[in-house]
Amino acid sequence: MRLGKRLWLIIVIKFIIFFGIIKWLFFPNYLEKKFDNDTQRSYYILEQLTKE
């Protein structure tokens, strides 16, 4: 039982760190954040692919 509790605790802490801190603080979706719609995103990527 002690092992089970310890593993559940690790899972909970890990999920809090992954989703509550890392994802939220450090890993925003770059294109989602920067542009409002897919047309703008497509245009941006095409610009990136074809710039000199």
Binding site: L3, L7, W8, I10, I11, K14, F15, F18, I22, K23, F26, F27, P28, N29, Y30, L31, E32, R41, S42, I45, Q48, L49
Partner: peptide, 30 residues
């Protein structure tokens, strides 16, 4: 039991790579 330990600790470590796709590799992801 050893499988449970490995599963519990390894669980969701792969999700970090999906975070990285969206943030660091957005051109690729698109």
């Amino acid at each position: 039991t050893l499988l449970a330990i490995n599963f519990a600790i390894g669980l969701a470590t792969g999700i970090i790579m999906e975070f990285e796709f969206g943030t660091n590799w957005s051109n690729y992801s698109w």
